[in-house]
């Protein structure tokens, strides 16, 4: 019997499938944060005054700088994909390293923000926090929970980009096979876009 060769095998390389899979995964991430946005809006509606008071504790300058940093990192990762498409492997790697530096900057600023709050006793369980009224407590809890979860995504995205850098260096990601880089870029944009929503919700609404 002649061997039947499958053209539509699941083991074939299929960049479109990888991309589709990545998009579906991004949907799940959006919905994960969506649940938190829902909780945030309900409690904001229920405790408007307290949320306003609590949000005044946040440092708008640091938040703004972080927004700029993260937006720029989204630009560099997009440029890295373009560089790879054009065959400039070196440029592509450098742009990814730049992205990682921005990611670290973001996390360092975040660290100073959090430690300033914690230094003031504004963390669940600490004395200053315990004296807040319930609405303000909820605000801070959501602040830590949502920016914390986002921070975790920054770290995961950073690791993802790190893996891609390695794969470019070993030649597994190259100008004719760069779907992994593109997916890392997509993930990084997600991290960015979630921050775009977190920033006004916590820092800007007055």
């Amino acid at each position: 019997m002649a061997e039947y060769l499958m053209v539509n095998s699941g083991h074939n390389r299929d960049d479109q499938a990888s991309k589709l899979g990545m998009w579906l995964f991004l949907f799940t991430e959006l919905l994960l944060f969506g649940g938190l946005f829902l909780v945030y809006s309900v409690y904001r509606y229920m405790n408007q005054e307290a949320f306003l008071q609590a949000s005044l504790h946040l440092n708008i300058a640091m938040g703004t700088v972080n927004t700029a940093v993260l937006l720029t990192s989204s630009l560099t990762v997009a440029m890295s994909v373009s560089a790879m498409q054009k065959g400039n492997i070196k440029v592509s790697i450098n742009l990814l390293i730049l992205t990682l530096l921005f990611a670290c900057t973001f996390l360092v600023i975040k660290y100073f923000e959090w430690s300033a709050k914690i230094g003031h006793g504004l963390f669940p369980g600490m004395e200053h926090y315990n004296m807040l009224e319930p609405g303000e407590k909820l605000f801070f809890f959501l602040y830590y929970f949502m920016t914390g979860l986002h921070g975790l995504h920054v770290i995961i995205g950073g690791i993802f980009i790190g893996i891609v850098i390695r794969k470019i260096k070993t030649g597994k990601v190259r100008p004719d096979r760069y779907i992994l880089l593109e997916n890392a870029g997509l993930y990084w944009h997600l991290v960015d876009i979630i921050w775009i929503f977190l920033f006004p919700l916590f820092y800007l609404i007055h």
Partner: peptide
Amino acid sequence: VLATPIIGITLLMIIAERVIGIGL
């Protein structure tokens, strides 16, 4: 794909509430 993440985050909130005792 579209419904499961909601329970995921809700369950994480339950854990956070049990650990930190925040009153969510």
